[in-house]
Simulated scan of single mutants.
Amino acid sequence: MKAPRFWYRPPGVASALLSPAAALWTAIATRRQVRATPYRCGVPVICVGNLVAGGAGKTPVVRELVRRMAARGPAAASLSRGHGGRLPGPLPVDPQHHIAADVGDEPLLLSRHGPAWIGRDRADAARAMTLAGIGAIILDDGFQNPGLHKDLSLVVVDGGSGFGNGRVIPAGPLREPVAAGLARAQALVLMGDGAGAADAHAAAHGAGIPVLTASLRPDPVAARTLQGKRLLAFAGIGRPAKFFDTLRQIGAEPVETLSFADHHPYSRGEITELLARATARGLLPVTTEKDAMRLPVDLREAITILPVTVAFDEPAALDRLLDGLGGVRMNGQS
């Protein structure tokens, strides 16, 4: 589903009417956290989560953390729930055999850059991963899931949208109150700048945790290919407008833009029609790397993909947080 527009506007009638439901949501979520006994798997578990429903840029951060942890020694892998996939796991994702309908689009994308697992039960999945020799687990989402103990939790916040109207679902986009969420985090990752950045800094300051500023950077080769091109751009991610803005920033011209719900499963008919529209208007079809995972495989090559990576403004600050995991067992060593 697409996020309601009022979630990202000053609180009004709609959010006020939904406040009782939001209070119930908050009470249930709080009770779940308090009553849980998280499973400790014995290897470092780093959670990359967010406080709002929808995208904030978590997946590139997960990918970067898998790379950084692997460089430190332990066999690192990501762990996702597998949203949108039919397989419950736990299992390692094989990009040669699995498709998004099997394991979800984000795990499939992560598996193309490093070891990736899925498991609807995070504790069971972590247990299976450690038995398979994984020495560090990067949890993709799952910040609100209390079943697995986290040794380090990073909350990713989009600098443009921030915390929306500041209300909890369904009155707003928050999965839980900001203060309650940041009380369990060790750092806030602020992705880009924008209207929500000041609120993010203030919230982190109030929680006494550092802010790691970062940005998404388009692949330079793909960006040069798109410069000056007239595009039919489409995306089914948390904030499609952010992708369209990125295209403009690299010097492309998105003549037509199509927004779909996050994780939208593209049908063959939709993509065939989209390609026909692009051809009729003389436009180059382009989408995100995450969306590409949900395209019919034989039509994927007809669409240009713009991959992105995350760049931290102060990577040493992130490394200091990872250094703090030194007391957690890695690869069976104390």
Rank of each mutant, 00 (worst) to 15 (best):
G236M: 14
E176N: 01
D319E: 15
V52R: 05
R239D: 13
A203L: 08
R248C: 15
H201D: 14
A128I: 08
G104S: 10
M191A: 13
Q186T: 03
E314F: 00
P60Y: 02
L154C: 04
P60D: 05
D94S: 14
G159N: 14
A3H: 06
G194T: 04
M1S: 15
G85A: 08
A53I: 14
L321T: 08
K150F: 00
V189G: 13
A126V: 07
D199N: 13
A292H: 01
G327W: 09
A76I: 12
E289R: 09
V310D: 12
L154K: 10
H98F: 11
P20F: 01
G324T: 02
L17N: 06
H205Y: 00
D94G: 10
V157L: 05
G192D: 15
I138S: 02
G326K: 09
S259W: 01
A27V: 04
T30N: 12
H264P: 10
D141C: 09
A128M: 03
R175W: 04
A180G: 00
G54P: 11
A222T: 04
T288S: 14
Q333N: 09
R294K: 14
I137G: 07
A311Y: 03
M1H: 15
V178C: 07
D124G: 06
T59Y: 03
V178W: 04
L148H: 05
V189L: 12
E289V: 05
H201G: 01
Y39S: 06
G181A: 03
A116V: 09
A222F: 00
A16Q: 13
A180Y: 00
G269S: 14
I271H: 02
G82N: 06
E64W: 08
P74L: 06
L182H: 04
A101N: 09
T213G: 00
A280E: 07
V155Q: 05
S267R: 10
L139S: 05
A100R: 09
V13L: 15
A123W: 08
A71E: 15
L232R: 09
D140Q: 05
R72G: 10
R72E: 10
Q227I: 00
V328E: 01
M293N: 05
F143M: 14
A132H: 11
P11H: 06
W7C: 12
G181L: 04
L109R: 02
V156Y: 04
P146V: 00
R63Y: 00
A214D: 08
L190D: 10
D94L: 11
G57P: 03
V308G: 07
F234M: 07
R68V: 06
G42E: 02
G324I: 07
A292L: 11
F260H: 15
D158V: 03
V286K: 06
A278E: 06
A101E: 15
F143D: 13
A311F: 03
L306Q: 11
T287C: 15
T304N: 05
R167M: 14
S78P: 11
G162P: 15
Q333W: 00
L295D: 07
G133N: 07
L79M: 08
P146C: 02
R31T: 09
V328Q: 03
H149L: 15
V308E: 05
R320A: 15
N331K: 06
L79K: 08
